[in-house]
Design a protein around this nucleic acid. Sequence first.
RNA 1: GACAAGAUGGCUGAAAGGUGAAGGUAACGGACUGCAAAUCCGUUUUUUAUGAGUUCGAAUCUCAUUCUUGUCUCCA
Length: 492
Amino acid sequence: MELYKENQLKIYNSLSKTKEVFTPITEGRVGMYVCGPTVYSNVHLGNLRTFMSFDMIFRYLLHLGYKVRYVRNITDAGHLESDADEGEDKIAKKARLEEIEPMEVVQRYTVNFHEVTKKYNFLPPSIEPTATGHIVEQIEMIKEIIEKGLAYEVNGSVYFDVLKYSENNHYGILSGRNIEDAIHNTRALDGQSEKRNPQDFALWKKADERHIMQWPSPWSDGFPGWHLECSVMSSKYLGEQFDIHGGGMDLKFPHHECEIAQSHSCSGVQPVNYWLHANMLLLNGQKMAKSTGNNILPEEILTGENKILSKAFGVGVVRFFIMQAHYRSILDFSDEALLASEKGFHKLMEAMEVLKELKVAKTSTFNVTDWKNKCYQAMNDDFNTPILIANLFEAVKFINQIKDDKASITATDLELLQNALHVFVFDVLALVNDAKEQSSDKLEGAVELLIKLRKEARENKDWALSDQIRDELADIGIQLKDGREGTTFSVN
RNA sequence: GACAAGAUGGCUGAAAGGUGAAGGUAACGGACUGCAAAUCCGUUUUUUAUGAGUUCGAAUCUCAUUCUUGUCUCCA
């Protein structure tokens, strides 16, 4: 029997602002759309946190036995710069500055994005569509919205008529914004804009001659508005109504609000059942953003090449650090916090190694079944990974106690424990034991030899030599650990 | 100015009315050890930004104040 049948998953829905029992439209199947990166620069750690949160959610849904179609787009066109109506396409602007082709920029940063997600042990999405690959569909959707009377053309550009839409629909349903108030406050000032109303947003923008990225359309040679691509691609691959739509908190308004308006205009139904928003990662108390320069790149953490870091950190440490906070909470990034996570992460990984060689007994002094249920309860409660991790450390303590003969476990329980830990640590949280990967048979042989030499030195009470071996190994990141059964080592 | 989220111990971060406020990290003491580290045991904030209120009972609900973050708008 599939696990989802015995686990009642609850998800916090941004639309209703409450935790709701998750019931997919089609039993056993989940359609999930997540707003992907805009590929005009390298993804920073803040971007990565959002995608990592949804990677974890994707993984847990898969673990529960759902067949998931996970669509995460690549925005490679149409992202209007800032909030300025006369803004140019972000991709095109970067291209002009660097004097290269727009698609070259797109290619470079798409490759970078894929490299980073691979390094950080992300599962690839089922479909990764691009905006430029769906210009035809976007034009079709604009036509449809115009036909419904909810968009209008001015000088070759097409705008969504928010006022008209809100006559019969609730614009602001997701973000909690009140459109009447907004219009009231801004009615006095009109002028240079060609829009009927300041709240209207572009579906199609006419491009000027210097604008490199442009496509023909019935209205002008131009490019699509940013919000349109997600409406088009989600409905194309997941249908007019689908289960989960995710993205960063900062996309709630206007992006997701506009998306709902566009999709709803065409289909007449609410496009998404569960809206999920991952919270921001803060650096120096500020949102990380490429536009302000307040950011750190995922690659820089792995090499330590950033002024706020005291050293390099592994992929597993970063994932662990991020998973220690709930995805809906703001998370503060700092060197100190990462150092603390590293210690905890190594402790967990050590226990995973110890787990492989535990001796079994006739009785268990720990209720493994109860413990496992607690882990599932944590995940079923809106993917509460911090609680899950707290539970994992309960198991770590137990494992170490067994090693010290202060606790015992039966063969059946041991298997249960091993399987459950493997699922949560490696399948769901997708932690990577970096240290273990750095180690090799040859290294192991060499260190074992040094351990043997040190043992002889200690037997001869040659403390100087034994400490030299220990300390110099420690300097290069190999830690010796003297236990009752002899000396073992770990690579940090 | 509007809307939204939040303010928890040295750091990080859970817990959404019910006895001792999770977990990681840090610090201190003990066991172990030649000494450390690792591991195990114990201790550390009488307390949840501040001030009121509701309640038999609040970190959790209400109000006010201060501050932080995000988004929008306006101005430039």
